[in-house]
Write a protein that binds this DNA or RNA. Sequence first.
DNA 1: CACGATTAGGATGAACGCAACTTATTCTTT
DNA 2: AAAGAATAAGTTGCGTTCATCCTAATCGTG
Lengths: 152, 152
Amino acid sequence: MADTNDLLRLDRQLCFTVYAAHHAFTAAYKAGLEPLGLTYPQYLVLLVLWEQEGLKVKEIGKRLHLDSGTLTPLLKRMEKGGLLRRLRDAADERQVRIELTEHGRHLQAEVLKVRQEIGCALGGAEEPIQDMRARLEGVIEQLSAPGSTRSL
Amino acid sequence: MADTNDLLRLDRQLCFTVYAAHHAFTAAYKAGLEPLGLTYPQYLVLLVLWEQEGLKVKEIGKRLHLDSGTLTPLLKRMEKGGLLRRLRDAADERQVRIELTEHGRHLQAEVLKVRQEIGCALGGAEEPIQDMRARLEGVIEQLSAPGSTRSL
DNA sequence: CACGATTAGGATGAACGCAACTTATTCTTT
DNA sequence: AAAGAATAAGTTGCGTTCATCCTAATCGTG
């Protein structure tokens, strides 16, 4: 029988396990990223830019679910660190395009090593990892579905 | 064949999906918690204290994976908000015990409603949720295993 | 008892992350 | 062409989160 004590038990909350997993990933990546001068969110920005360079701030924000209030200072720090350049678009001066520097591009090889080591720590098997990832995607979708807004 | 582009693709990273899920949960809870004057980490602290009152700062930190640098200001804000009291332990004055106020205790009923609504948004079925939660626990364990530190 | 080590909590500084607001630019509609 | 709406980025303020350092209290050993 699920009473209040059961329903609110910390060790049964998916939301807390996700929160703890986020901490664990951040900590795990930190060891590899810090020597490269990168934070974890900066690593995510690089993942996006390695896939497609010259994106606008807005487009990066859409992929990472971050707004300009977070991205502007983050990108400025990365620019100061010599990873990328922020270029005001000539055709539409409201927009800022993000280009990687040579340094930013070459970091991909180093980061790949870090990523591989995390993969190994997880057991190396790609299939069960992707299976869980897909399920988590489903949770995100349900949490952000228009219907769930109503139910809140 | 998994080349660099595949391995570093954002939409294949479990770490990013976890990061995105954390955002989604925070946003989903926010709608319900804000009217109660709570943030999401404050909600987590209450979950801990509803299970066992009078815990020391250190003990709360152990359960939530947070250190004193995070908890001290967070608990002070909650004290200011009338949710709890911080009491220096008489027997060992290094320690601070956290007691809930009446208000903090009575919030449990309100929070339970919020938690139920999130549960409904996820489909309501408890079993597959707990299954995924258990798998994520496994990931956390592997990420924080002593062996993985070596491999990083 | 005294000295050093350990422990708990607090203070500070840097980096996210979000909400709310501002500014500059572009688009729309008349 | 001009007024107003919409859009992109930036700014500010608050709350977390961590690393690092600091202080006070307690413990352990001689």
